[in-house]
């Protein structure tokens, strides 16, 4: 009799604990996916930073009169790299996005001016770099899209009952969507 009475409360309690553990693990996995998605954006941003010196060198060799634009680009890159270096400890993804605004604008300006210049089709190196720039911007855009899809899935998981109770108890906080500004480089024809 005692055994039966014990099981009547022990059984549901065990089921509840298992359900909580499963929900917690599901949320944890979602959060890890989120971190992985952000790491991908970070990789692509670093790739863009690395591409700038090559682009500056190639454009400077061919179109020396674009000195002001190139200087602005170099300054924006330095600022964005500094933000990247400080990111690990301090900056959140939205703050990091703000730090990238200057570089995106400078790249967009340079791409538009270089694309409009005569003689571009003959410059194989610049065309190649512009293709890489287009691809890098696309990769950042796609990585941001993947990040936001992952945020959406995480927020849905956090907001759905009964997982929402577990999320609140274990402090799984909602994460904002990322609005990362991008340049729109012209694709080499």
């Amino acid at each position: 009799m005692t055994s039966a009475a014990t099981w009547t409360w022990l059984g549901p309690l065990a089921a509840l604990l298992i359900a909580v553990a499963l929900a917690h693990n599901r949320l944890l996995r979602r959060r890890q996916l989120l971190e992985r998605a952000w790491a991908q954006i970070d990789v692509q941003l670093a790739r863009r930073h690395d591409l700038v010196p090559e682009l500056v060198a190639a454009v400077q060799a061919q179109f020396g009169h674009e000195r002001t634009t190139l200087e602005q680009l170099a300054a924006a890159r330095t600022s964005a790299r500094a933000a990247q270096a400080a990111r690990t400890a301090h900056l959140t993804p939205p703050e990091r996005a703000v730090a990238e605004v200057g570089l995106s604008q400078a790249l967009g300006t340079l791409s538009a001016r270089v694309g409009a210049l005569p003689g571009l089709p003959s410059s194989h190196a610049v065309r190649r770099l512009l293709e890489d720039l287009v691809s890098t911007e696309n990769r950042i855009a796609f990585a941001r899209q993947h990040y936001n899809d992952t945020v959406l899935a995480y927020r849905e998981a956090c907001g759905r009952f009964p997982t929402a109770v577990v999320a609140r108890a274990f402090r799984f906080r909602p994460v904002p969507f990322l609005d990362l500004p991008l340049s729109s480089p012209q694709q080499p024809g």
Binding site: R36, Q40, R127, E131, D132, S135, N138, F142, A143, H146
Partner: peptide
Amino acid sequence: DPQEHQLVNVVAEMAAAAG
């Protein structure tokens, strides 16, 4: 080769989109 270089870039873009 510009076309093959572009292919590598396109594949990398789609990989970024798929995570």
